[in-house]
Design a protein around this nucleic acid. Structure first.
Lengths: 250, 250
DNA sequence: TCATGGTTTTGATCTACATCAATGTGTCAG
DNA sequence: CTGACACATTGATGTAGATCAAAACCATGA
């Protein structure tokens, strides 16, 4: 909940930090709208493990992830938890037109978010249609991702779930940094086994076992703490159960 | 795929048929926009079991359900299927800005859809911001529903899944028809055991067993083919695993 | 250097649900 | 009335993944 002093970022710098979506929200704005956005935005940073908002709590801002990873989760009374959203840099959180957060929002890693107070943001949406249009596109993308996720939760085996998660993160990672060093893929898997289990609807023991299995078979290589190397992406894709083309995952 | 001759419905009649969302898309339009909508819309009807579009097929329209139930499903190569959308009267199908359908769209019951050719619809969205705004609201609602569904798929027991599905249908049914005869709830469960199993990520045998169990315990009463009576809604809610208030399900 | 606490791995056992197989029920055509 | 067909129920058995328990790993700080 540490409210950090606003960083001296210009818009162009900011867009460098969050290359896809946040820029898409901001960069097309006319100059005066842009100025207004500047006036109502602020930055907050969180340490890994901190909670941004609890489900049911008042949430008077919308935000986009600048660096780090945030998660959205639902909890049942008896403590069972299911992750329902994974926000990478440039992803958007918060729903215009709703007072309270429907989910626990948690920092999975150290996290910086760029926040806009909700009221002014909504007013600006009314004045500036393209923001709403862009938000609609992004929401439709998220809905598609959620539906892909539903297939994973409802029908995939533990092994397929793990392979899918790794491929999803690898793909999104590759999309963010232009570094498509084709052949092998190297990236950070910045989730604990527990976070992975909440994503996948498994226990953390099962996650651990299946990751070990994939490693023993050489489909993935783990380097140090959480660095992962995929020697042959297509081979791993085979294990996901998805049809080969991979389609429109974010 | 039977293309039905356009029915002689006025707008007000149409709004009677699809009381919530479809009206929300249309009724606020200015008179001239309304006329344009009238010009580009047409009706199609399908028999139970028919496929509206296959995943990957061209889909050059968006549509809203007038009567009946449609489903969105994903299929894996080996045939495993997961339902990812359940469209009741007034729900919206199709994504502006996408050429092909991402899902199999199927008529779960006899079905009538009100279709708008995509191109003119998109052009009208640009001219008429409130349509886009309404679509954003609807998409956000669907995203919330999808996330609730993810919790169900990832963490609920078979018994909780069945209870949840019945409650969801009962609630949406009650929302459509004003008839809130409180105390007991009576409604149609217009899904086969197989469709239910695709919704819930279970096998149809497990669905059958759990429905029988709920019936034997008196939590639900089945009348005739697919009519269901819930003598005590709150008692059934207890079995869903959700927190009592029930929140924001569509 | 060693204790401390968080995370991960691995093992042994249990169980909810899947799978395979048979039987029952309702509806429609003839 | 009688197959025939689609759908639903019920039973017997198997298994993927959960649960319970212990150990290993790994950073941090005294």
């Amino acid at each position: 909940m540490t409210r950090v002093s606003p960083k001296p970022l210009s818009f162009s710098q900011e867009c460098k930090d969050c290359p896809i979506r946040h820029r898409a929200v901001c960069a097309r704005c006319e100059a005066d709208e842009l100025t207004q956005l500047e006036q109502i935005k602020y930055y907050r940073s969180f340490e890994a493990g901190q909670t941004v908002v609890w489900a049911g709590d008042k949430m008077d801002f919308v935000a986009s992830v600048v660096t780090g990873i945030a998660t959205l989760s639902q909890t049942m009374e008896d403590g069972r938890r299911q992750m329902v959203g994974l926000l990478l840099p440039s992803d958007f959180a918060g729903r215009p037109g709703r007072e309270t957060s429907a989910y626990d929002v948690t920092a999975a890693t150290d996290l910086v978010m760029c926040c806009f107070r909700k009221k002014p943001f909504e007013e600006m949406m009314l004045r500036t249609p393209h923001i709403g249009q862009r938000l609609l596109e992004m929401t439709l993308d998220e809905l598609d991702a959620a539906r892909e996720w539903m297939l994973l939760l409802g029908r995939k085996t533990a092994r397929e779930k793990i392979a899918s998660l790794i491929c999803i993160i690898a793909r999104r990672d590759a999309a963010l940094q232009l570094s498509a060093s084709d052949g092998e893929l190297r990236f950070d898997l910045p989730l604990t086994r527990e976070a992975m289990s909440e994503y996948l609807g498994l226990t953390l023991e099962t996650v651990s076992r299946q990751v070990s299995a994939l490693r023993k078979e050489g489909l993935i290589v783990t380097e140090g703490k959480r660095q992962i190397v995929i020697p042959d992406f297509d081979a791993l894709l085979e294990e996901t159960g998805d049809d080969s083309d991979g389609g429109f995952l974010i």
